[in-house]
Design a protein around this nucleic acid. Structure first.
Lengths: 152, 152
DNA sequence: TGCAAATATATGTACCTACATTTAATGTAC
DNA sequence: GTACATTAAATGTAGGTACATATATTTGCA
């Protein structure tokens, strides 16, 4: 099995934290790649997929474009244009919010919902990828450690 | 302090592995963002920075474009064009390999090396970001867990 | 040797992202 | 109520990425 050192063919790391940082970046890229490949057949990009999932998580409740931005993994990507693409394909719908006409309410459509259900079958789940190597207790600990890292 | 659940404002995760996957993606994006901000003043992109670091790691030994690709975090980015940019700024040099004239040997220049040394001061180190929250023993364990995850 | 297959890199293209700017609506102080 | 600052979203743009294709070189084999 390949360790991160073998993977990027670097034998020496200046320290274990350096190695961990690169390992996290590398693992994230690996995840992204697997998902991207799975989504390719459906002509849907990773950020588009993430937006659809966020909308599904809303359980019918609309969310603003700014709200989407906050919840997206890649904050700086352009939610407005991602929603454009999804709307063109009728996977989401968009209407001006009554309460504040600057805002736009975005919701997932029936079509978007059923596409997501189809994708659920194809996209590798984290559970499927990790549960054999990692106990749920270890996963919990890892979650805690990552939360720690992001909060000095 | 913010957990991943608070961070992306999702109260329920279907399972702890799902949560961990998103946590890894999120943490990687957070790292990337911090680095990107630090590099911005020097007008150098993240992939460019990574390539320079790989070249420094070569300790003077040249590496081919394909070799760079293998070691890069984002494998599918275009190493050829990244090297173009770096060469224009005279941070790396490129010459056709004598042994195999299809190959191109890339090395970091003195200018590139001293830029990297300057950047070392500015770019947040993983150690600086993590060592307060995580013992080196825990970091080692996390490294092992991530290596496990990527290899079913 | 000669020629097809394989390999290394470069390039063309469309799309995506980062960042600044614009447009429109709302809030606030006077 | 008017003027100014603030906020939400959209848009323009430059540059980066993904993927297919092109070009040059090497390898392997009849």
């Amino acid at each position: 099995m390949k360790s991160i050192g073998e993977e990027i063919q670097q034998s020496e790391f200046s320290d274990v934290y350096q190695k961990l940082g690169i390992n996290i970046l590398f693992t994230a890229a690996w995840f992204g790649e697997l998902n991207r490949i799975a989504l390719k057949d459906y002509d849907i990009s990773l950020p588009q997929y993430n937006v659809l999932r966020i909308l599904r998580g809303q359980k019918g409740q609309p969310i603003s474009v700014a709200g989407l931005c906050e919840r997206m993994i890649d904050k700086s990507s352009n939610a407005s244009r991602i929603v454009d693409k999804l709307e063109t394909r009728k996977l989401v719908s968009r209407r001006i919010c009554d309460k504040d006409r600057r805002q736009v309410d975005v919701v997932i459509t029936e079509k978007g919902f059923s596409l997501l259900e189809e994708l659920d079958e194809k996209v590798p789940t984290f559970k499927g990828m990790m549960s054999k190597q990692l106990s749920s207790k270890d996963a919990e600990a890892l979650n805690f450690a990552l939360d720690q890292i992001r909060n000095k």
